[in-house]
Design a protein around this nucleic acid. Structure first.
Lengths: 148, 148
DNA sequence: AGGCATAAGTGGGAAAAAGTGGGTTTTAGT
DNA sequence: ACTAAAACCCACTTTTTCCCACTTATGCCT
């Protein structure tokens, strides 16, 4: 499971070094086979391949006649790329995905349970600002009674 | 259970010495495995790992399509880090979390039931000021009829 | 009440691991 | 066949982790 944020640097070839704490897990779980795709909020999503496959299957079984579902399918599956960790625990991010998420050098890798998010550092900061005033207004009903 | 506040000092490497009164309990409960994450009020939260895990599970099962829930997931899970007590009962606080909570040296550790809060001392003082005038204005309905 | 013993707080150093950068070979595409 | 990009590999630098030693505090026993 992924959690925690790491500030990382893409190297001159566009490679991303996966934090060491995840490497053994990823080698054991999927031999370093990962899937990168785009997220609607402007970051990338990084899944272990075994986590991604059932998500793709469920997604593609949804109705192809609902325009919003079609758009979601095109977006997620259309941007997905297989990547493999090299011996140093790095993955190459294609120029297509790099330009989608506006990644140049400074990047945040943010663990989110079964996946990680990859953010341009400045965009991540901006995203975090949204927590200011989080408790203003009505809370979503799912959070009623939620205790930390 | 955690209660009471302790004034502690981070050392030059950013390590926090857990008060001795909690150590035996933490070694027995979770072998020193703890989880540190950020709190929206500007402090950090320190959970024994067994307390944290069900909270994370409940959080990650909520809908990923609600923007406010997504923000909360990104914030809490995105900042969570596993830490382990060393032989001297200390945990290392990463520079990411230290800069989030503006921790330099003087720190307050405040017990809060199933978790502790970690505050920069000055911010803790400021937080306490907010208790002045607590009873001004309308009370939340949950406190109606509440007796101490 | 003094001193001794144990436990806690604190600091730092050395070994190991991880981050980083590039050079060379292979593959694919034109 | 030639070019360009990607995969692979190796070496160097930096960071992290683990361990040990010293100082300070606490409490117990004489």
């Amino acid at each position: 499971m992924f959690q925690g944020a790491s500030q990382l640097n893409l190297d001159s070839k566009g490679r991303l070094a996966i934090p060491a704490r995840y490497r053994d897990m990823l080698l054991a779980q999927c031999a370093g086979n990962l899937v990168l795709t785009a997220d609607a909020d402007g970051c990338l999503l990084l899944y272990p391949q075994p986590e991604w496959l059932p998500i793709r299957e469920k997604l593609m079984q949804l109705s192809a006649f609902n325009p919003r579902i079609r758009a979601l399918q095109r977006f997620l599956v259309g941007h997905a790329e297989d990547v493999v960790m090299d011996a140093a625990g790095r993955v190459l991010i294609s120029s297509t995905l790099r330009s989608y998420a506006v990644l140049d050098k400074r990047v945040m890798l943010v663990g989110q349970g079964n996946k990680c998010e990859v953010w341009d550092e400045a965009r991540w900061q901006a995203q975090q600002e949204k927590m200011n005033g989080f408790t203003d207004g009505d809370l979503p009903p799912e959070l009623e009674g939620f205790t930390l």
